[in-house]
Nucleic acid binder design. Sequence first.
DNA 1: GCCAACGTTGGC
DNA 2: GCCAACGTTGGC
Length: 794
Amino acid sequence: MNEEGVENQLPPGTEPGVVGDTGPNINAKETQETAGEAPAPLDDPKETPGVSPNPEDDNPAATEIKDEVKSTAGEPGMDWFEPLEDDDDPDTESLAGETESVAGSERAMKKIYMLQSHRRKRSHPDEGWEDCPVLGEGWKRKEVVRRSGSSIGQKDVYYLGPCGERVRSRVELTTVLQGQLDLTSFDYKSGKFYDGDAPPVRVRNRVKRKYRERSSSESSWMERGDGAETPDSYHRLTPTPGPKTSQQNQTNVYTNNVTGAYQQGSHAEESLAEEKIRLPPPSSSRTLPLPSIKGEFGSEDSILDCARCGSTFSGTWYDKQRKRPCCPTCWALSKAKVHPMIRFRKWIPCGQCVGCHNSVNCGQCANCKHGLQSPEAKKRLCRKRRCMCPIRKDPESKFLSQMPYDDCPEMYDDNSNFQNEITDSQQPSLKSSDTENFSVNMDLNADLSADFNMDLDEDEMSTDDDDDWHKKRKRRSCGECKACLCRKDCGTCDFCIDKPKFGGSNKKRQKCRLRQCQRQAMRHLLPFQMGEIEHGPDGTLPGRPKPQYTYSRKSSFKKNRGPNTSLDLTDNEDDEINLQALNHSDYGMRNGLPDRAPHISNHNYSQPSHQSQWDAERSHTGRNASGVEENEEDFPMITQIFSLADNPNESSVDNENQLMKLLHTLRLTIMPILWYAIMVEGPQLQLTQCSKQSSMADTVVLINPGFYYYVTVQKQPLLPTHPVYDKFPSRLTTATEVVNLLLALERYEVCRGLPPKEAMLQGGPIVLERASTCEFLVTNKETVCANCRALKRL
DNA sequence: GCCAACGTTGGC
DNA sequence: GCCAACGTTGGC
């Protein structure tokens, strides 16, 4: 933790001793801070260093300068919470107070990300590790403080083994050191072994409780706007030893600042927390990087209006979310609530906004459906009827409105874009689905949150139910589709295999592919089967593409590469259907999985032919297979896939394309049960019987680009003389012919070969013996082919 | 305290 | 451009 703070704080090559220097650096900080006081410094990010979209990316010098300014702000050089200094960045602060339009919210959001990435970039995985010899030679330890979220300030401890084992919990550590070290008396958090009488757990809990209480109660909702969710805010909240100063008389909530909160906490529990989390002594220079609010710098305690009871009180107590003032009484009451998710509500619908004026439930949103499906459940307000006022910002304060809720003028006064979006979301006849609206709303909330540099509080935005509805980390789940409702990991996909519980190394850390939301998961996380025919009527694919900042679209040229090229599991929206199919195949191979589907067939893939319909239905309706919305009876038509097929210049590429056409035709055809068609390397069109219980479980039909086909049984090619070949043309050019072949194959069984030898029956492995000329497939009347029977007689 | 998994970075 | 890796954070 300390180390990370240092690594985040110090510019390359900066010595700790230098960091602690003051003088001109303070001035630099002051200058920076003054810049943050500008009324609208973010209007043109280019003019505001550190606020422009990641200027450091393009200008490493900017990073260095910025770092230097921070690190030389007169702070202790090796301050563990130094990285939080970023949050003191006046740029960030001005961001908090910025009254830019909602159209700029995205930009603001990006700024936040940039600031975050700024920190992340400076955090090198190899940095911040301390030797931890108590665990053995080569072991290292690292502490990381959570910089945001409800668990802000919480300290996570990681260990790095000599062989690169990354350990994130005691359980993992115990597993890694099993047989090598007894960790019974090992305090994971501190990284020390305790004597038998030491009660490390109790101490740890106590400290943690105090710690969190402090961070909760002392943060300001305004602080949150400029980094109160980061350890830096906690830094500011760190109590100053000694008596309070006379500066604790700040009275205006809008001129309150972190200093007030910071200096307010000079009591025992803070001291304890400080000691336990090794807070350095606050520096007087800390007063420098105070965030400005409307250009004013306040300090000390404030006279606040309790957001809960309305009473006025003095101090810097805030609710558990550290977002609103909360008097000590209400705070005590709130502490009595054990469950961390219990929140008190403050938001009162304004009665004037669009949401409040909406008196009819839409019947389509998640909350409406929730009520319909679970009448006994707690009633949830239709999402279209939400009061929208929380997203209104106070043009006077530069923060989200804290004005009386009944004083709710027109909404989104300067946020026309957002107004439009919200208005649109009220319209049931949108071309986008409710889910999409839902997603939009969430993203907007996130953007607004960033725009105002503060979180939109759960209890403000929510009615009383879906507190997590707008949470950023929930954007990948609609909560309604089959995948979201599925609670069981398949245990076979690459993401499951990666999980420690399945013996994986926990590197991917992704949810089971089959549990990835079919609507909102990142597209590349979806099961690759879903990537086959996914286009909606407007050409869109389910799932969300990767962020724009990371990826750009592929050119169409790339998409038409030959199947033998390194195909990828792209998530680009404009991917062609044909490539999706190729991706499917490619994906399976790239992941070392067989191209056959049965190994992942315990969910949607148990009936491949239906899967085709399922996919196609999704393509047709633009919706996914989310429970009742699926209608396998609706059989879509998919239009021409390859135009190259019409090219008179025949080529291998054309043949491949023709094969693709056949593949997609098969996908639209009702196949014999549990037969599934995919494209595999070659390219070849592969038809596989997915059911292990089928007599054709080991039988595969492979069709080459020229439509010549052959059959394999247990990976052995069927002899060309096999009767089944006589029944069909040498080339399978139509789906009908393919289906007929499969139906014909279903009439066969696999030759059982020679009976096992006696020795094998006595415990040894059973190896099936066959004649070299085994026919492999025999009619149902037979069990062993003629050639094997002949061999048996010998 | 621990696990699950989201979102981003940086290497390739 | 892509994705493995993992820092981070929410949930239980």
